[in-house]
């Protein structure tokens, strides 16, 4: 009966059968659904890509930060500057005393004072060299690591295209609330009193960070002491990533202890809204802390 109706219907219409309509519609719906899901996936995938670029940026920042204080060079420089300062202060005091009270020692005291001052000037020149060397080596280490990692980011999927990240922009600074690694020096009472008023933190007994600890009696000389995590009971602070709000740019020619790396990554969502986005990730890491002075 049905076959007869179909035959008749086909003969009347001269048309194609309605059979398979459901299949076609289902196919269209499924294709539409697949496109929708892919569009959504492309936006969901952005988070995955961002986490990857953030991890790489953090790693580059850590590479640079470790290099900055390699073999505790910044920590040692800070300690040498503090001790050199103490020597200059002591030599100046001895010279003044000899000038006033012991004329026969005056020439020797003057010579010792002058040598101490020359030592301070030389040390300041070395500090500036160290700054250049540490920064350049850190930049070089970051560039090497970037070259190793960059290819791993490129990704081409029908719904997501990820480019190679741009060359990292590197900056150096210090961290907020991290004092220097130099413990308050004992032995010269007058200097100790002066320092405790101006340069030493009362709670930790460490010299403050990024200060020019000038001596009141000799203001020509500079004694820049930089920020660096101090050793506590022989525990050296390992290099670590920090939050962006803890980063502080250097205002003076201090030695840097924090490495900041910024990287951009081009991402295209291929299906649907053909959007091009540029992701920016920032990694900030603080250098390995200073070691205990023997």
């Amino acid at each position: 009966m049905i076959r007869t109706y179909e035959r008749a219907s086909r003969a009347n219409k001269g048309n194609r059968s309605n059979k398979g309509n459901m299949l076609v519609l289902s196919g269209v719906f499924l294709a539409l659904l697949a496109v929708l899901v892919l569009v959504a996936c492309s936006f969901g995938g952005l988070f995955f890509v961002f986490n990857r670029i953030q991890t790489t940026t953090d790693e580059l920042a850590l590479t640079g930060a470790r290099k900055l204080n390699e073999q505790d060079r910044i920590g040692q420089m800070n300690n040498m500057i503090a001790r050199c300062r103490q020597l200059v202060y002591d030599a100046h005091e001895s010279h003044t005393y000899a000038y006033e009270n012991a004329d026969h020692l005056n020439q020797l005291a003057e010579q010792l004072h002058e040598e101490a001052r020359e030592g301070a000037i030389l040390l300041e020149a070395e500090r500036q060299k160290l700054r250049t060397v540490a920064v350049n080596e850190a930049k070089s280490a970051i560039a090497d690591r970037y070259n190793e990692l960059k290819e791993a980011h490129a990704l081409v999927l029908p719904w997501l295209k990820v480019a190679i990240p741009t060359t990292p922009v590197v900056d150096f600074g210090c961290a907020k609330d991290i004092s220097s690694n130099v413990a308050e020096l004992k032995g010269i009472d007058e200097l100790e009193t002066e320092d405790s008023k101006l340069y030493v933190q009362t709670d930790s007994h460490l010299y403050k960070e990024n200060i020019d600890a000038k001596i009141s009696s000799d203001s020509e000389l500079h004694f820049w002491i930089s920020s660096l995590p101090a050793p506590v009971q022989s525990t050296v602070a390992p290099a670590r990533c920090i939050l962006a709000k803890q980063y502080k740019a250097l205002m003076h020619p201090d030695l840097p202890s924090v490495c900041k790396v910024e990287m951009k990554l081009g991402v295209d969502t291929g299906i649907g809204a053909d959007a091009h986005q540029e992701m920016k990730a920032t990694g900030i890491a603080v250098a390995t802390g200073g070691e205990k002075v023997l």
């Binding site: 101090a230 506590v232 050296v236």
Partner: peptide, 11 residues
């Protein structure tokens, strides 16, 4: 966890 250092004030 990143910060495995010690606090210089409290140790």
């Amino acid at each position: 966890w990143e910060n495995l250092s010690r606090n210089p004030v409290t140790s």
